[in-house]
Design a protein around this nucleic acid. Structure first.
Lengths: 244, 244
DNA sequence: GAAAAATGGTATGAACTCAGACCATTGCTT
DNA sequence: AAGCAATGGTCTGAGTTCATACCATTTTTC
């Protein structure tokens, strides 16, 4: 008798200590940031030394990642003062949707992301509405909203939408919340790329966005959360059918 | 003009690609699992080869971590068939609370964890109540609840409480949710160790636990969430005062 | 009692990552 | 035109981590 052995938790609690090699992780983070529109088309990434510091990675490793991005056509690099790495982002439509016969594990992760999203994004909206926002924050929010409302092409709209949601998360002032929303948005983005593009009801979505902005600006936390919940539910309903 | 340069998001979105060396991460995960009571006193950890696989780490690296745990007095190891590594856990009260003059960064992370917790744990409760639970799940939940209600000594109670919350998370069936709750509970645990132990109002806490179990078993998701929110708020109120 | 099985203990060479220094190119300032 | 500054490009040696064997000890099985 080795005393009460562990119950059911170990399998759930212990998780891989790190997904992959450092440079792969860099590629993933940067590519995600670019695809989500954190660095829009034509913008310049921070200098290598700075990025390396941000990611807690040696410059050598970061450079390997940059080389990969360059080879993938996401960025271009020029030397010398005023040079740097700019985003070119050939949107790289899903590398052959045909090949994307979605594995069961991936599908499971997607569905999980939808569930988790319906927890964290409403939570982020709640926090954002609870926070006291200065002019700069309000400006960020309204700008993000204006961009998503103005976007016409789907790819643009997708990026602007990601940026909008990430902006709300960043207004929450909670790093863990930002991280969770980033992860969820990345997966969402992946799903939308792999799934036969559905004509997202943009008008409907924009009405919800507008309501969100109003709720957050007026500090109505409860309402911001409800609105975001509805927004997540609407998106999820569309996607679940096509994935499940 | 390098096109719309990135706004405010990069700083929030890009995060360290991996905190530390692999073996440190192993130590942290295992120590956390032990302290949270996933592996209770006297229980045997899985064989090294198995743990290494779970954590996606080479056995060599895992063994370094085990050596550290052994040296720290958390576990003991015996060889041969039927041997293995058992939890001895000299509870190691906070390695000198005096030395724990808490850095500002740490304090910030703690407060962030409290905010994030109030998002994810209620969400986990909501999902758990929404899920259809079979006999085994119900048994896990009731056992976890019984243990936390029966615990007398504070250290025991703390572990049982962690297990209770992790069990609810695991009932949600959402890996991302489990991960989030695990992270939050680990930080909470750290806080409680470093803070002059307050006589948590155990009776009050247990009433809330009981209400949670009822709500989850009856499938009342909305109510489970509200109850958990209240529970988190009550805990947070106590802690914020002592940390802020 | 002998063989098998399960477990921890040890060793080796390849690959990855790091930190730091230095080089090369380009634009800005004087 | 000369020098400075900012940026990417290259090199090197040390430290980690990995994968894969193989060894040693104990219990179980026959």
């Amino acid at each position: 008798m080795t005393a009460s052995p562990a119950p059911h938790l170990p399998g759930a609690v212990l998780r891989p200590v790190r997904g992959h090699h450092a440079f792969e992780a860099c590629v993933e983070q940067l590519a995600t940031a670019i695809r989500l529109g954190v660095y829009p088309l034509g913008s310049t990434l921070p200098p290598e030394r700075e990025l390396a510091t941000m990611l807690h990675v040696s410059r050598a490793t970061l450079r390997e990642a940059m080389a990969a991005l360059r080879e993938a056509g996401l960025v271009q690099t020029t030397r010398g003062r005023g040079g740097g790495t700019v985003v070119t982002l050939k949107p790289r439509t899903p590398p052959a949707r045909a090949a994307a016969r979605i594995s069961a594990a991936r599908r499971g992760d997607w569905l999980d992301a939808l569930e988790f999203r319906r927890i964290v994004e409403p939570g982020a909206a709640y926090l954002a509405a609870s926070a006291t926002l200065d002019q700069e924050h309000l400006g960020q929010l309204e700008r993000a909203h204006a961009e998503v409302a103005a976007a016409t092409k789907t790819a643009q709209h997708r990026q602007a939408d990601s940026r909008f949601h990430l902006t709300i998360a960043s207004l929450s002032g909670s790093p863990r919340t930002v991280e969770a929303v980033t992860s969820v948005q990345a997966t969402l983005h992946e799903m939308l790329l792999a799934i036969p593009v559905l004509g997202t009801n943009i008008a409907h979505s924009d009405r919800q966005h507008a309501a969100l902005v109003r709720a957050i600006e007026s500090g109505n936390a409860e309402r911001a959360r409800k609105t975001m919940e509805q927004h997540c539910d609407d998106t999820a309903a569309l996607l679940r059918g096509l994935v499940g």
